[in-house]
Write a protein that binds this DNA or RNA. Structure first.
Length: 225
DNA sequence: GGTAAGATCAGC
DNA sequence: CTGATCTTACCA
């Protein structure tokens, strides 16, 4: 284990038992997606289902906004993205490439179409369940290291579109367990889009092996000829 | 009604 | 690098 992740786990352990996890309230989501995105880092997403409970710590996010050519909300509310224009603190889930699901956290005031795409999680609980749902995953770092993967691992689907993250006993809960966002998260351009590609609206936990593209650990590695 | 592109992933 | 797989949004 490298020094960075070791330090991170120690500080996390030091807080264990001292800090009760709290459900993030609606006002947490009243800001812009560019503000919310880095604040979501290290928050805990919990999903309850008949099969059991599964959760993960957010390690990579991307911001999307109504005035952003890359966003689904750019051309106004459509049947697909209308929840982006609703109240914050709910999930926007859409079908990607006809195959996968991708989950976003809606934010900003009602009427403004903004959301933060959850791109990667560090699996925390229900690992067995997550492995069952993702048979192709060879390692723990394959479980939630991508927007489609994390939805599969946590059992998120279109049925969760518009569901609240703020109800303590709800199926979906976003928790602050005392682990703050990094003071200096890694930041870069977004992945997989063809418009507004220059906006540096992607943030991740520097050094995390659970991010979607290995950016956190490959930054020191040069191109191999 | 037709169509092109897509906020991805896994396997070769 | 490519195929899978299908919904969405836009155009006629």
């Amino acid at each position: 284990m490298d020094a960075l992740s070791s330090k991170r786990q120690q500080s996390r352990a030091a807080r264990a038992g001292k800090t009760a996890a709290t459900v993030l309230r609606a006002d947490f989501y009243s800001c812009s997606s560019v503000e919310l995105a880095p604040r979501l880092l290290n928050k805990l997403l919990v999903v309850r289902s008949e099969e059991g409970l599964a959760s993960g710590r957010i390690v990579e996010v991307e911001a999307y906004d109504q005035f952003d050519p890359a966003a689904h909300s750019f051309r106004g509310p459509t049947p697909r993205c209308e929840v982006m224009f609703g109240v914050g603190g709910v999930l926007y889930v859409y079908r990607s490439y006809g195959i996968h699901w991708c989950a976003n956290v809606v934010c900003g005031p009602p009427g403004h179409g903004a959301a933060v795409l959850l791109r990667a999680l560090e699996p925390v609980s229900g690992i067995r369940l997550q492995r069952d749902r993702r048979a192709s995953a060879q390692r723990a770092t394959d479980l939630c290291s991508g927007p489609g993967k994390l939805c599969q691992a946590l059992g998120l689907s279109g049925a969760d579109n518009g569901a609240a993250l703020t109800r303590p006993r709800g199926r979906l809960v976003l928790l602050d367990d005392g682990d703050p966002p990094p003071r200096l998260p890694a930041q870069g351009v977004r992945v997989g889009i063809s418009k507004a590609t220059e906006r540096p609206w992607r943030w991740w936990i520097d050094g995390s092996p659970h991010v979607s593209r290995g950016d956190g650990i490959r930054t020191a590695r040069a191109s191999k000829s």
